[in-house]
Design a protein around this nucleic acid. Sequence first.
DNA 1: ACAGCAGTTGACGTGCACGTAAGCTCGACG
DNA 2: CGTCGAGCTTACGTGCACGTCAACTGCTGT
Lengths: 133, 133
Amino acid sequence: MTETTMTIREMCEAFEVTPRTLRFYESKELLAPIRQGQKRLFTKRDRARLKLILRGKRFGFSLEEIRQLLDLYYVGDQQHTQLKRTVEIARERLSDMERQRDELTTAIEELKEQLNWGEKMVAASQGEQKAAE
Amino acid sequence: MTETTMTIREMCEAFEVTPRTLRFYESKELLAPIRQGQKRLFTKRDRARLKLILRGKRFGFSLEEIRQLLDLYYVGDQQHTQLKRTVEIARERLSDMERQRDELTTAIEELKEQLNWGEKMVAASQGEQKAAE
DNA sequence: ACAGCAGTTGACGTGCACGTAAGCTCGACG
DNA sequence: CGTCGAGCTTACGTGCACGTCAACTGCTGT
């Protein structure tokens, strides 16, 4: 059940993606499932990465940007220079994300105000179909 | 200077977009600049909408979704039923955005931790090029 | 032995969000 | 009067993120 590896089908159901998507991500070097003969076997590492990939996508990052980010999450064998560069990239992404969150917060506030206004209008036009003009 | 309308060129510089983009948005009914003969004149309303469009894009909304949202921001002559529906859509978008913000907050925290770790690694590998293995 | 099914590799198709190039129009200016 | 630049339309091209289809391979059960 809670085996260490999963087939492509199991991954698809667990994460609600298609096989095509997983193969595509592998071709872009976002995932690196091990091979048993010809078949792919997805490890715990792949599952963690996929989770991050899907989250990154929801934030509007491109797959290429996500690949950069994943490098940070899974260093471990990088050289100093490479690691330093990765840290820099991550710092930039981090401020991107913080800016994005701040904007989002503002937008939420604005939308809430609009909603209040809209709801008042709906309430006001209850029963009077021809309030316009 | 602070005239009520702007040319396409002025819009482009003000918002850092291309003419093509503005025409494209018009073709998708996101903007509706008035025409003076053949030329487009962008009003204050268009500028407000464009600002919202660009923000929406940064949040990962599609242009079609943004169009839905803009309907809410610029109602004014909607019927009751239509307005009610629009309010519903907006409520859904709002919870989308709040979920997105919460996720983003979590991701920011995680990335910060990773960064701290990464920076420690960088510091630790100062001067010793061959620390690996 | 053979059907059936999960999985695989190309290769081409698709929708979105524009970019880019061609050719037209129109008012301003020397 | 020509032409110059700003803007216009039409139409095809592009990059990304997959979808779709065809043709294979390799177990699995009967």
